[in-house]
Nucleic acid binder design. Structure first.
Lengths: 205, 205, 205, 205
DNA sequence: TATGAATGAGCGTTCATTCAT
DNA sequence: AATGAATGAACGCTCATTCAT
């Protein structure tokens, strides 16, 4: 790895850690520099402004989400063939992706929190993350609905929102309450969430 | 109403509005003063510090929640008699409380957002809001479980968290996306959420 | 005088003094604050930015020039009646205005120096000072030319520029060389300049 | 030309161009490096400090003035023989030297402007440029005065200053106003200036 | 030699807070 | 009680300068 890339990585890691704990506005660039063990000045050499640093963080979060976490692998399931069931989608997320979510929870927290206050970042995330996932999800749901598996009274948007907020609530609670991330416990909770949602969303067989 | 109370109300309203939009740290006391149409100095006469103002806001949110929104009325249902069903709890929240939630959504957003970064406020909210509700909810669920109505594989905490995050997700989405609050539409969404949760949580009859 | 006006005057005086000595860019707002015996912060309360302070200085220079130094009194002579001669114009400037020029030489130096590097200020000075004087001067010269007093080979612009640069050169030299301003000596030099210009500009009688 | 000399020339040209436009303090070494198409670091290899670069510029200006523009050729006229008239001095400057002045006006502007704020540079210019010219000019004037050609009421210094400021005013105006340099027009103006000064300085014949 | 990377010192600016009236 | 005036402390950011390769 080049020297510059190494330094940028240090900066980004330090920034994500502190911003996720204190919020963007309460985080001073001097703190980031100290934690990253570099001089404050190169932060501005590389990212121009503090806001530029935040944008880089959100872009990295988008990239990670796209590459490693949700989008591409889930997309494969969602779009591949019709015989994938909602059950498999849940399992895929819960079994395969928890570790990645946990490893990047600070990054994701920063993205989700700051998106509230920065219109440009919100549009970026909507465009790069939310809308693509939603689009594939609709295609997938069309198949499931045609198979008669889904409660027809429910909108796609509500279903997706319930899945997302349900699965995330375990992580979110620990982030807000500043509690440790016990992978076994989180998986146990997510399986209960899955149980609720499967029964709630699918038609009674 | 006394002049002081009148002024305090103006300050609090202005503060809630701006902080809910920009976050606590990004909100300047000078902005609040301008919007409240008072001099910056009396903010500090009344609340000593900016943090004191935030504490007053959170206390007001707790009070509103306790008095008008969730706690006391729901408490009545939850604790009154055993023949109240989960169905009624949902309806009560959805039918009676939406307007109050909508009217106070900025206040609630400030509380929920800032609780992340201020330990003292977090403890206050846990102590005054979350734990009391949770305590009553456990009593209520004990009854429901004894009646054989609840899926025994699900923990109380998961169920409560799903209800809360599910019902709030409609409001939250609009807050984050800066969309208008259409009461009819929100009620429609909440009824779908109720449908999912009822089926998901209760035992198949 | 109000308290605010008093403070603004202190700031402006200090700023003019230091900027005239070191130039705008080399002058630190902290220095100005120390010399003015006020806190750095109110400079920005009153003038928003350092550039805003410079603009205030130039505006003050324009005002002083208009009110006290050149424009209005000279305008009176230039436009009043045709029987004012070039000789009287010179005398008026030399006799009556030297003290005012000397008293405000730092202010004028700042204006003339910084106008080079700030397009907005340049346009302001052209619009408020140079063009009005030039306009009146043309009217005056028309009369003098019609009386057959002026060398017809010379353009108005060249004549005015020679008068201005000639009369100012005594002051300018002392400013650049950081020499003391001896009023008697300056008046002596100006009278020589007048002698040169009168002979040079007017037709041989 | 050696590679180093080539690089130094690029740096100096870039520096003169930018400093003449924005002033020394407002000019960043990084800008100079970009315009000169070299790395910022070698500026400091060659000139040690930014001030060292400015000193090099002023020294180059002195050298150019001495070698090519004013000093040596004028010196030749001034000191060679007594039968050179003021008229010839003017013509020499106006006819032969305008192009050189125009080609180097940025260099000269930097020298004249920065001399105000740097005592060491001021002394250098006084010692190398102003005083030598003035010394020769006095000798020349002595001859002219002995021939009864010069108005005895005028001091040498005033006369020299009027010549310098008069001839330069055409260039100066265009520099300050950021106007194009039209050689024909400038020459026309200078001839008018010469006309004024000749009549003004010499005794009526 | 030449340069990309890095930095210390300092600047303009902000903002919660205090004080005199 | 209420405010205009003032400020200390810090923050984001800049830039001439150095260093390692």
């Amino acid at each position: 790895m080049g020297k510059r890339e190494e330094t940028e990585k240090q900066i980004l890691n330090a920034a994500v850690q502190i911003i996720s704990e204190k919020g963007y506005n309460a985080t001073k660039t001097s703190e980031i520099a100290i934690l990253a063990d570099i001089s404050e000045a190169i932060i501005f050499k590389y990212y121009k402004t503090k806001k530029g640093l935040l944008t880089a963080i959100v872009n990295k979060a988008i990239e990670v989400l796209g590459r490693e976490l949700a989008y591409k692998p889930i997309q494969r399931i969602l779009t591949s063939s019709a015989d994938k069931s909602l059950d498999e989608v849940f399992d895929m997320i819960i079994e395969d992706r928890i570790q990645l979510i946990l490893k990047n929870h600070a990054l994701l927290k920063v993205m989700l929190t700051e998106v509230q206050y920065h219109t440009d970042l919100r549009d970026l995330v909507l465009d790069q993350v939310v809308n693509p996932i939603f689009k594939d999800f609709r295609v997938f749901m069309k198949v499931q609905r045609d198979l008669g598996l889904i409660d027809p009274e429910l909108d796609d948007e509500i279903i997706l929102r319930m899945i997302a907020s349900g699965l995330f609530s375990s992580v979110l609670k620990r982030v807000i309450m500043n509690q440790p991330f016990d992978e076994v416990e989180i998986k146990r909770e997510m399986l209960q969430v899955k149980r609720i949602l499967m029964k709630g969303i699918m038609l009674n067989s």
